[in-house]
């Protein structure tokens, strides 16, 4: 008799426990969804430079329409030779240094909009390395910070880093025999149909579509690599694509060459964009963007 009274009580206790008090893993925002300001890519041109060379940089930073106006601060740090890693996780710059317009702080290479980033690699960036190590090279660090334009109006104030989107990129500094070049996409296709730049694709609601980019063979480089045994190997790049959208649902975030298509299911309504970001795993990058709208 006691049990018959106890059992419903136990189950009732369960009913008052909030099953939704925490996010479940499946509730976390998917990486392919651009529902906030995101740095999706930074292209260095060229992606591999010699000491003394000039490199320019562009960033793909999409976001919802209601994101406050942004500015992008660009920094560069030369390779740190002799340390455990030649890649600094981030360059350090006191933003208040930017308030002094008379001098350019160390490492500052651009401010967008207005001052496109570019950086000439110091001539002595690889000094001290053995010739075979110069051929392998080292990483300089390029850092871009996107923050609300209101933040830069008072640079002496503390910055709320939760409002700052920061990205770091390696710029390969070397004297390689076959320096890297950025890859490129020839085409963006939806259901096999080529979509020219500036075209908006009309899609049916809640329907699956195959989205695809075309990476020409010429964009996949063959290069020389001196392995740890001292032998020179001829290698071929293994590029991959990361897919993004600001609506609908992408099935596969990554696709590896030669499978450069993903599946996207359209939302019930609205309009937005797709982004395909290609990487060659050597520091080279490219991207394409196309727009969609639901009929």
């Amino acid at each position: 008799m006691a049990m018959t009274r106890l059992a419903p009580l136990l189950f009732l206790t369960g009913c008052v426990i909030d099953q939704n008090q925490w996010l479940r893993p499946r509730d976390l925002s998917p990486v392919w969804l651009v529902d906030r300001l995101r740095i999706l890519a930074v292209v260095a041109e060229p992606p591999e430079v010699e000491p003394g060379d000039l490199a320019t940089f562009t960033a793909l930073v999409p976001g919802p329409a209601d994101v406050p106006d942004q500015v992008r601060i660009w920094l560069a740090c030369p390779p740190v030779l002799g340390s455990e890693t030649t890649f600094a996780a981030s360059c350090s710059l006191d933003p208040s240094a930017l308030s002094d317009t008379a001098t350019v702080p160390d490492g500052f290479i651009g401010l967008e909009p207005g001052l496109p980033p570019s950086w000439r690699v110091p001539d002595d960036a690889l000094d001290g390395l053995a010739p075979e190590d110069e051929e392998e090279g080292a990483y300089a660090t390029i850092q871009v910070m996107s923050l609300p334009s209101t933040a830069i109006e008072d640079l002496s104030a503390d910055i709320d880093f939760t409002e700052v989107e920061t990205g770091t990129k390696r710029l390969v500094v070397s004297r390689a025999q076959t320096p890297n070049a950025n890859p490129w996409f020839d085409d963006f296709r939806v259901e096999g149909v080529s979509i020219p730049e500036g075209t908006t694709v009309e899609v049916d609601p809640n329907q699956p579509y195959e989205i695809e980019v075309v990476l020409p063979d010429a964009a996949i480089e063959t290069y020389l690599y001196v392995n740890s045994q001292g032998f020179t190997e001829e290698r071929i790049e293994e590029p991959y694509v990361a897919w993004y959208a600001d609506g609908g649902e992408i099935d596969e975030h990554f696709t590896l060459h030669p499978y450069l298509q993903s599946s996207w299911v359209s939302p019930a309504s609205g309009s937005g964009s797709w982004w395909a970001v290609g990487r060659d795993r050597r520091g080279g990058m490219t991207w394409l963007e196309r727009s969609w709208t639901v009929r």
Binding site: L10, F11, T13, G14, C15, I17, D18, Q19, Q21, W22, L23, R24, P25, D27, L28, S29, P30, V31, R36, R38, T162
Partner: peptide, 28 residues
């Protein structure tokens, strides 16, 4: 877990660490 208590076994973050979720333990 007869009272269907929600317990966390591990912490998970979304891709940019702006959201936290918990891998839940034994369900009922």
């Amino acid at each position: 877990n007869v009272v269907r208590a929600v317990n966390s076994e591990f912490t998970l973050y979304n891709y940019d660490y702006s959201e936290v979720a918990y891998v839940r333990g034994l369900p009922f």
